[in-house]
Write a protein that binds this DNA or RNA. Structure first.
Lengths: 152, 152
DNA sequence: GCTTATTATTTTGAATGTCAAATGATTTGA
DNA sequence: TCAAATCATTTGACATTCAAAATAATAAGC
């Protein structure tokens, strides 16, 4: 593999990271959902459209402790985006779900992501698109392995 | 462009973001630089190896306010990674530079990024690698345009 | 040369995000 | 039954962040 490509990929990755976070933050602040931070947005994203995730699961997905998540959820419940449902078969367990307001926001955010990806793939052929996916999959798998190693 | 690809790219991007941050955080904590957070690490990355960036420039690059950056720099100076040099020709301006300790860390972090990218590109042909770059470039340009629009 | 505006940075106060440890509630298993 | 395990919440201490105000230096206009 050409060393020049390696040099080129790195700055793109770094910049893209910052850009995405920055844009999402600004888009939120300019919308009807300005009472939310980007962290809260991503918690809503992790909860998702279907009431199937427990506190522990969402905490793992967002890489925070359950204690931190509980605080976040308290705020989101207060603001009307999330609801807690305690399970009847095991009353220790709480499932998290989005309210109608939460769902509306979820779809909006999802659309932003879709548009971003569509734009990325726009002007690429089917073959190039598949190569991009392959690259992302490689990256994803490498990261998963690395994460595994660090947790041992 | 195939709609299926769009659906596949999105989850990869989201997961990759979280993975990278998580791994970098853990790698730091397990190294001799455990007195640094991931945010501080990225500030050092933005300052770079050559003493040429002002406070304002680095703040813009890392997407925080100058006030926030000043606080961060205060800590990094205290910990011995960064030094401030006030310019003689315009004494309002402060240029930020890395100390030897800072440079050592910078190179270590840079190596991590390079390994990550090498692994990503490993097993890909030259053509596939170029497609990945093209995708990243499209994404980067789209984000830059979006950011521009939001700032108007 | 003075006054005013501009530019660059720092300080401050308030809100949010974070973790580790302690606590509460419930279930499981011996 | 009751001790241990599991799931979630609360609490206390810091870290991170921004907006706004304060400070400082320089430039511009008269």
């Amino acid at each position: 593999m050409d060393e020049g490509l390696v040099k080129e990929v790195n700055p793109y990755l770094v910049t893209i990271f910052n850009q995405v976070l920055n844009i999402e933050e600004k888009a939120l602040k300019g919308s009807e959902f300005k009472d939310l931070s980007i962290k809260e947005m991503h918690t809503i994203e992790a909860i998702g459209m279907y009431r199937e995730h427990t506190t522990s699961e969402v905490a793992k997905k967002t890489s925070v402790t359950v204690g931190t998540l509980t605080v976040t959820i308290n705020n989101l419940v207060k603001k009307g985006y999330v609801e807690r449902i305690r399970m009847d078969n095991d009353r220790r367990v709480v499932k998290l779900g989005l309210t109608n307001k939460g769902r509306l926001l979820y779809r909006l955010h999802d659309k932003f992501h879709r548009d971003m990806v569509k734009e990325t793939l726009g002007g690429m052929s089917q073959e190039e698109g598949e190569a991009l996916i392959k690259g992302l999959r490689n990256l994803h798998d490498f990261l998963a392995r690395t994460q595994q190693t660090l947790n041992e």
